[in-house]
Design a protein around this nucleic acid. Structure first.
Length: 274
DNA sequence: TTCCAACTGACGAGTATGGA
DNA sequence: TCCATACTCGTCAGTTGGAA
């Protein structure tokens, strides 16, 4: 290196430092979806990350590659997540979307349960706390369209045992999952109407992320929803019931089975009159 | 494919508590 | 006293697996 280049190197180094500093301090914010919607990355709802299982059927998973749609890779370590966990995560993300990522989002347990349309009894409070711990303790590695996020789904949290106020912090890196055309605004009212029906919720989320759903094999749906039902006939029965529920809530207009293929037709969105 | 029984979790009504 | 929040407990609905 010549003496002549040294000042230029110093300037470049300073510029790189400034750029890195600016990136660290940049205000990163989630997309602003409307109030009746809940935003979720497609990588979450097109994979078995949030399985259609009951709480009692959770398993501990270590560095497992979960079933996912082509173009998405999901690795998971921790206690298996289900649709209830997705409800909680979506609600927290929904509340946090109006403030920069990395800042604490505070709420009361009661308020969060109410916001999710759940009961507010002791069992629900315990369930909520377990969910928050699960979302904090897990480790996911999601790759979608060349962008990878790895880490927990909630960075950290705090709770005031007297007032039951929570404060949770989301990772800034989570924004990588909300790239353009990589997330879906789920109809929250429909999802609430499907509460306690994990398979219907999982299919609602999956098909919400496809404007014109294509025919999908039963075994593919079985994998994407993380179903524990090993019997094909039994799973088909469950899917039929779940899709009927999606028709009832106005999400689908029709569905049919052609052999082991499932074809659905989305209902046109309701236009609210002023 | 349908039916059934057992199990589990969610829900809701009634009540208690604490702060303004 | 009122209101928001929290707790307890009984009931109900959903899920599952097995049998026919």
């Amino acid at each position: 290196m010549t003496k002549k280049n040294r000042p230029l190197d110093a300037v470049l180094t300073r510029m790189q430092k400034n750029l890195a500093e600016r990136e660290r301090n940049a205000v990163i914010q989630l997309p602003l979806w409307p109030e009746p919607k809940r935003g979720a990355p497609n990588s979450f709802i097109r994979s078995a990350l949030f399985a259609a299982i009951q709480s009692k059927d959770r398993q501990y998973i270590k560095e497992a590659v979960l079933a996912s749609q082509d173009g998405i890779t999901v690795k998971f370590t921790g206690e298996q997540l289900n649709q209830t966990d997705l409800d909680v995560w979506e609600t927290i993300v929904h509340m946090a979307r109006e403030q920069p990522l990395g800042t604490f989002c505070s709420f009361t347990a009661h308020g969060l349960l109410k916001a999710m349309g759940m009961g507010t009894g002791n069992s629900q409070h315990k369930q909520l706390h377990s969910t928050l711990l699960r979302l904090t303790a897990c480790a996911v590695e999601v790759t979608h369209e060349g962008k990878t996020y790895f880490g927990p789904l909630i960075k950290s949290g705090a709770k005031d045992e007297l007032t039951r106020h929570y404060g949770v912090e989301l990772n800034k890196g989570i924004i990588r999952l909300f790239g353009e055309n990589q997330w879906t605004a789920l109809d929250w009212q429909q999802r609430q109407e499907l509460r306690s029906q994990p398979l219907a919720q999982a299919l609602h989320a999956f098909y919400s992320s496809h404007r014109e759903p294509f025919a999908v094999k039963l075994e593919t749906l079985q994998a994407y929803t993380g179903s524990r039902n090993k019997q094909v006939a039994s799973f088909k029965r469950q899917v039929r019931t779940a899709l009927s529920q999606l028709v009832n809530v106005g999400f689908l207009s029709a569905f049919k089975f052609e052999g082991d293929l499932v074809q659905v037709e989305r209902a046109p969105p309701l236009v609210k009159r002023a």
